[in-house]
């Protein structure tokens, strides 16, 4: 039996793909910025630069929350016996 969602998926198979790629690109961007923050904080904390450590921590936390929030929009895999690995 077919339903609306299945026929949509069959008609536009690239939709899920684009969504997944977009989310991955955003996640990689967030993680890259966080690595940059962490590197900067490590460098500055050596000089007792507390404000920088705190600011990057806040920024990094916001990015982490954004990353978790993005995971909500991960598309469900199109379950069918053919698609199952």
């Amino acid at each position: 039996m077919s339903n609306y969602r299945r026929s949509q998926n069959q008609a536009h198979p690239n939709k899920t793909n684009a969504l997944m790629t977009g989310i991955l690109v955003l996640l990689i961007l967030f993680v890259s910025i966080q690595i940059w923050f962490l590197f900067g904080a490590l460098n500055n904390a050596l000089r007792e630069n507390f404000n920088f450590a705190l600011t990057t921590f806040i920024g990094s936390s916001i990015l982490a929350v954004a990353s978790f929030w993005l995971l909500r929009y991960l598309p469900d895999p199109i379950d069918s016996p053919d698609n199952e690995l």
Binding site: L27, V31, A53, S61, A64
Partner: peptide, 16 residues
């Protein structure tokens, strides 16, 4: 990636 992102934030918190 989401997990890694959380870990990095924790690491930054550890510095603070």
């Amino acid at each position: 990636l989401g997990l890694f992102s959380g870990t990095l934030a924790l690491g930054n918190g550890a510095i603070v």
